[in-house]
Structures are given as C-alpha cells and as structure tokens.
Design a protein around this nucleic acid. Structure first.
Length: 575
DNA sequence: TAGTAGTGACTAACATTTGCCCACAAATG
C-alpha cells in the first residue's frame, strides 16, 4: 500500500470508530495520523526502512506498527476485525447531509441498513420514522441528501471554480442597504486549492433583509437552513454557500471564527482559556465576570491573545501558533513583491497572443521583466518550436526588447520538453544561448517513480536548465500528477541552484503548498509564474502567491521578487 | 491513540447555530 492508501485506511478506521461510538481521542488520533501522512513529502517505505515512523507527528508505537503491517502485508488485521462489527460501507452514509455517526449506527443496528440504496429505499417507504427522534421530515431530508450525494458526489470544488462564484455573491451583497462589510471567509479566504463550501460574512445590524435576499438569489437551488444569524443554501451548480451576519463591532472575532481553520480556531480558543477568557464569534468573555471584550478587527483578536497577526493562508494549525508565540512568523511574500513572470507562451507555440501583446499586457500590470517560454518541438500538439524557429524567435524578442526600453525586459526562454525517454529537446549549445531555460514533463506522466525521477533529475542536473515548471504535472481535480519523490527533487534542486516553479494556474498549483514549505526548509528557490497562454491569465498570479504563502514563503524565497539582473546572475552561476 | 511522565496512569478538542422532535444530533469554522 502507498501513502495515500494508508491515509485513506486510517481515515476509514476513524469513521468506523466514530460510528461504533469509541472515545473521541482515539478517533482524533486516527484522523491526525491520516492527515499527517497525506502531508508527507516522502514515501512511508523509506521512512520505515530508517526505522523512523514514530518521528512522523501523531504516529506513536501503535500506529507505526499498523503502518508497517500495511506496508509489508498490504492489509491491516485491525481493520478486518473492525469491519466485522461496522461494515465499511456504512462510512459512505456519513457523507449524507444530516446523517452523523449516531444516526448511522442507530439505522444500522435497528434496521440492518448498510448502504445508500437501502437507506434511500427505507426512507421512501417511511421505514425510518419508527426510530426515536426521526420523522417524516428527517426521511425527506435523507432522500434529498442521498440524491445530492449521488448527483454531485462529495468532491471538493477547485479554487479556480469557487473563486468567481463567491466574488459574484459578495458583489451582490455589498450593494444591499445596511451592509457595512462583506468578505469571503472559510477555506476560500485561506486559499486552499479546493474548497468544500463557500463561506461569506456580512457586517450589518439588521440581518433579516440580507438573509431574505441571500436565500432568494436566482442561482439558489435549495435552502438548507435559515436562522437569524446564519443561512445555508445549495446553488444550482451543487456548491454550498453559508452566510453569517453579525454586527460590525464584532467583525474581528466573527471573521476570525468564520475563516478558520477549525483546528486553528480550537487552538486560539485554548489559548484564550489559558488567559481566563472564553472566545467565540461574538467576543472574548472573561471568566471572572468582567465585561466582554469586543474586537472589530482580526488584529485585535490576535493582540488580545498576545499574538502577532497571522495571515489567513497560514491558519491551518501547522505550526503557525507556535511560531507566532515565539515571534518567529515569517513575513510572507505579497502580490506587490512580484516583479516578473518567468513562464508564458505566445502565438509561436500554443499561446493566443503575440509576444508584443503579452509584453504590453505584462508591462501594464507593472511587471519589470518577463520570460517568453514557448514549447519545444516534441510537443507537437502545442506547435512546439524547432531549433530553427527558436533562432527566429530570438531575433524577434531581441528587437522587441530594445523597443520596450530599459524599464521593461523581455527575456528569451523555452519550456523545453523532457521526453518520455529522459532526453531533452534541445542540445546544450542551443540552451546556452537562451536567457532562461525551463524544463517540464507533459508526456509519460504515468511512468513508474524511478523513471519519472530519472527524467526530472536528468533535467535538474543539466547546468543549462534553470527551472522545472509544474513539477508533478497534476491537473486539479482530474489528474493526480506524476509519482515524484519530492524530497529528492527538492534536495537536488537546492544543491544545483535549479528553481522550482509554483505554477499559479488554479488548475495546477504545482508545486503545492506542502512542497513549497519543504522546499523552503531545504533551501531551494521558487518561482511563481502564471504559464499564461493569454494576457487574461496574468490574473492567476494571486493564486500562485497564495499557494506560496500557504507554504510560508517569504519574498527572499521567490525569484520573481528579484530584478532581471539579479535573476540573470543567479542562473549564470548554475553549474 | 499519542504524548508525557516515568514504566502504569493520566490528559487531551472550543463554542456555537439550526433542524426537528420534544432533548438531541448534526453541522459550522
């Protein structure tokens, strides 16, 4: 079994334990283990070989033994035993909106129902209302819940899809009378690569008309709930949107609460308790009966806890609280720090605009230099450049560069194919003439790990290759990406001075945040690029910056914050 | 179950809203 399968097994075990009614801490332990394994940059086999499994956070002797069992036997006896009591299919039922572990257990124990089909049928026949606490309305909810699950699945929505939907709603709410502030919260504000639902927070004294408008928006399919401060709806496209309305004087505590993450919130509330305060979305409440402390800003919330402000992309309880307590929070790279885009295409290959049009658009956005990096010959589908066309392109770029003057530089690069057999598309003497050489994988992504790594490391080890673009080649949510041994790639990139890209296209976000963080720890340099095929794509940059921020990147870590001269000096140094 | 303290025992995840049935489960971050 691989890392992903082992994490999934632990996750299922946690769900099964929850249905069985086990102690909450045991369940949490399995969930934590699953999450930490998902975040791992290394293969569990390698860690086991070093005898270091318990060095993974949340893995103690017991779980280490279970991981070892799965790695060697491809199965887990504990899981099999548990499955005799709690059929693993029951876990599917937890995904039905309105069903939790207690109800699932009750339905299984009393009716013997083990899957969604039986559940839906029993609900339709009125067989669930005999259970205590269940009635006709619960049955209807369950029928709708199963239907929604079958129709839309339980998949999360890519950031790039949710972002415009959320902003459209925000714009509409902003125009309503009595609305003082509107903001996106939740995982969307933290800029996770995929989101479960859209959370929107409104500051207003009178919530009622806002709820009224929200639940009646034209793209609302069903209203899941509507109360005085909180409403939830499902949109026609299957996305769930939650709205909370609170007074502006409580904006800081409510935005902090609604932004999360859940585990970050729990940590904040624990810190509050240690200081004799109870923290909720409305205020801090001193336990000794003194007056509530209201926070109009998030800064005030963190200040009350004795912490510096923690930016939303970091709020995942991945060490940011500890760093804040020690005063060691990094200063994250910001949009304003970005001076260049080192990966874009033109009509020379599969881009939709000419080099000049791309350059003009980039210049208008305030960039100081760009790299034109069209595809190379073997990517025929993208009209990749032969050596001859590359030379012709060089002439055009040099002329345009002169035309734009000293304040905006157009550098000549390539996005060179790393072929399936590991060969590079251009020989060294051609690469030597280019300003910036990008190498990337587009074909043979399903090769075994050894082959993928041989190809990637071959490129990294070439002294002319300056950057690896979208290192895994994943596409969210369709394609998982190549089986890259990230630890090895990052280490070699750091050793050779090869830049790793954080591709800002929301379908890619590759490197992903956890790999960004590891790259920074190891000391590899990063570039945030849009991979634009049209000037409209330049706006993707903020997704890339957010991903870098989620990986704790500072301006120092990101070469796009450098001048063209500093960048050129850096790549010339590679050997 | 992990982590810690210390070799067997203890502690550890907060605080709320809503729906639906009549006290609680589920869902939200």
């Amino acid at each position: 079994m691989n890392n992903r399968e082992i994490a999934e097994t632990f996750e299922t075990v946690a769900d099964m334990l929850a249905i069985r009614g086990d102690q909450i801490h045991r369940i949490i332990a399995y969930r934590r283990a699953a999450e930490n394994i998902r975040e791992l940059n290394r293969d569990l086999n390698a860690i086991m070989a070093e005898g270091n499994l318990t060095s993974i956070p949340g893995i103690g002797a017991t779980l280490a033994e279970k991981i070892e069992e799965m790695l060697t036997n491809n199965r887990l006896a504990f899981y099999d035993r548990l499955a005799e009591q709690i059929p693993p299919k029951l876990v599917e039922m937890l995904k039905v909106e309105g069903l939790g572990p207690k109800r699932v257990k009750q339905i299984y124990d009393s009716l013997g129902i083990t899957d969604l089909d039986q559940l839906s049928k029993a609900a339709q026949e009125g067989g669930l209302r005999q259970l205590p606490g269940m009635g006709a309305k619960s049955e209807a909810r369950i029928i709708a819940g199963v239907e929604a699950l079958v129709r839309h699945g339980d998949s999360r929505t890519p950031l790039g899809v949710a972002w415009p939907v959320a902003n459209l709603i925000v714009e509409q709410l902003r125009d309503l009378a009595g609305v003082e502030r509107v903001d996106v919260a939740g995982s969307l504000r933290r800029m996770r690569e995929s989101i479960g639902d859209i959370d929107i927070l409104v500051a207003a004294d009178d919530a009622e008309p806002i709820m009224e408008f929200f639940c009646a928006m034209e793209n609302v399919e069903t209203v899941l709930g509507r109360g005085p401060t909180k409403s939830s709806v499902n949109l026609i496209n299957g996305l769930q949107v939650d709205l909370r309305v609170l007074p502006a004087a409580r904006w800081g505590t409510s935005l902090s609460y609604f932004t999360g993450s859940k585990s970050h919130n729990v940590r904040l509330r624990e810190l509050a308790i240690k200081q004799g305060l109870s923290l909720n979305e409305y205020s801090f409440t001193p336990q000794d009966g003194q007056a509530d402390i209201l926070c109009a800003t998030e800064e005030a919330v963190y200040e009350t806890l004795g912490l510096p402000y923690i930016p939303p992309p970091m709020r995942e309880d991945k060490g940011e609280i500890e760093a804040a307590l020690k005063g060691e929070l990094p200063t994250l790279v910001q949009m304003e720090d970005i001076r260049s885009d080192l990966h874009m295409h033109s009509t020379w290959s599969d881009g939709k605009m000419t080099i000049k049009e791309m350059a003009e658009a980039a210049s208008r956005r305030g960039l100081s230099h760009i790299v034109i990096a069209d595809h190379s010959a073997s990517l025929g589908i993208a009209n990749g450049l032969t050596i001859e066309r590359l030379r012709d392109q060089a002439a055009e770029i040099r002329a345009l560069d002169r035309e734009f003057g000293p304040n905006f530089r157009i550098l000549h690069g390539t996005e060179m194919e790393i072929r399936a057999n590991g060969e590079l598309d251009f020989p060294d003497e051609i690469l030597a003439a280019l300003d910036f050489v990008i190498a990337s994988l587009h074909v043979g992504l399903r090769q075994p790990r050894e082959q993928i790594m041989e190809r990637l490391l071959g490129a990294v080890n070439n002294p002319h290759v300056d950057m690896i673009a979208h290192p895994t080649g994943r596409l969210i949510p369709d394609r998982p990406g190549a089986d890259v041994e990230m630890e090895v790639l990052i280490q070699r990139a750091a050793d050779t001075g090869t830049i790793l890209e954080v591709n800002a296209n929301p379908q890619r976000l590759d490197l992903q945040a956890k790999d960004v963080r590891r790259a920074i720890e190891i000391g590899a340099k990063l570039a945030i690029n849009t991979d634009a095929h049209h000037a409209d794509h330049f706006q993707f940059i903020h997704f890339g910056v957010a991903t870098a921020q989620r990986g704790w990147a500072t301006a120092e870590d990101v070469v796009n914050t450098w001048s063209a001269d500093k960048l050129m000096a850096f790549v010339e140094n590679k050997s």
